[in-house]
């Protein structure tokens, strides 16, 4: 059952005096429990792809459909609710909500509909699950990159989302931490049935995903073989920018 589908999505924006095409007719379908990784260089549009998938930005062309509903037709309020309750995001900039402690930041998504004691309990539990329990009372700037990523994942998962979008969560992590993170994501996808779409700069962890694609200057390139689990032969990349 398709959870998220992008159909020929186009996204443009202006930088200075030039117009840049961030996404060039990207089409993508994700089903429940999929763990998909997209590889691409910087400035290839990875972050934009995630923002469009989350409904934070509207595409200039094409459509984005989540759970059968086209995001563009939804009123703001509904899109916001989707973001709060069904879609979890792990962004690259990696900050906590301004002014809150780590625990409160993780608890924030639950505050809308639950009491704060309940929310904090959920947050503690989630931090435990991702292996970052000791971060709960720490200051953000004291945390290592690995811990920060784990906290961000907890923050995304605490709302028990159906879709998890992650923007290069493995950047700044060493080998071991990357392993751990990818395992976690994989288990979340397979055990909890969460659809995971992850952007990644490097190859090794991509192999652990179910499917692998690359994004090159806004164009999504799917490998020639769509069969799962096969060792993917990397397509020849275009010349530099």
């Amino acid at each position: 059952m398709t959870l998220l589908s992008l159909d020929r999505v186009v996204k443009r924006y202006w930088r200075g005096y030039r117009e840049i095409v961030a996404l060039d007719e990207v089409s993508l379908e994700l089903e429940r429990g999929d763990f998909v990784a997209v590889w691409g260089s910087s400035r290839s549009g990875k972050t934009t792809l995630l923002r469009v998938a989350a409904g934070i930005e509207a595409p200039d062309g094409g459509s984005v459909t989540f759970d059968g509903q086209e995001l563009a037709t939804l009123p703001r309020k509904h899109r916001a609710r989707l973001l709060l309750e069904q879609i979890g995001c792990v962004w690259q900039a990696g900050r906590i909500t301004h002014g809150l402690s780590v625990l409160d930041h993780v608890a924030l998504p639950r505050l809308k509909h639950h009491s704060h004691t309940q929310a904090r309990r959920d947050a503690t539990e989630m931090l435990e699950r991702v292996g970052a329990r000791q971060c709960a009372q720490a200051h953000w700037y004291e945390l290592s990159d690995g811990d920060r990523t784990r906290v961000a994942v907890a923050h995304a998962l605490v709302r028990r989302p159906r879709l998890l979008l992650a923007d290069e969560p493995t950047a700044n992590l060493n080998m071991i931490e990357r392993e751990q993170l990818v395992s976690l994501l994989r288990s979340v996808a397979e055990d909890a049935g969460v659809t995971v779409l992850m952007m990644a700069p490097d190859a090794p962890e991509l192999l652990r995903s179910h499917r692998l694609m690359s994004l090159d200057h806004g164009r999504l390139i799917k490998p020639r073989s769509e069969r799962r689990g096969e060792l993917i032969d990397f397509p020849a990349r275009g010349r530099g920018a």
């Binding site: 309020k77 909500t97 924030l108 809308k112």
Partner: peptide, 8 residues
């Protein structure tokens, strides 16, 4: 940040 959360 709250808007990014989807708090409405």
């Amino acid at each position: 940040d709250l808007r990014t959360e989807g708090l409405g």
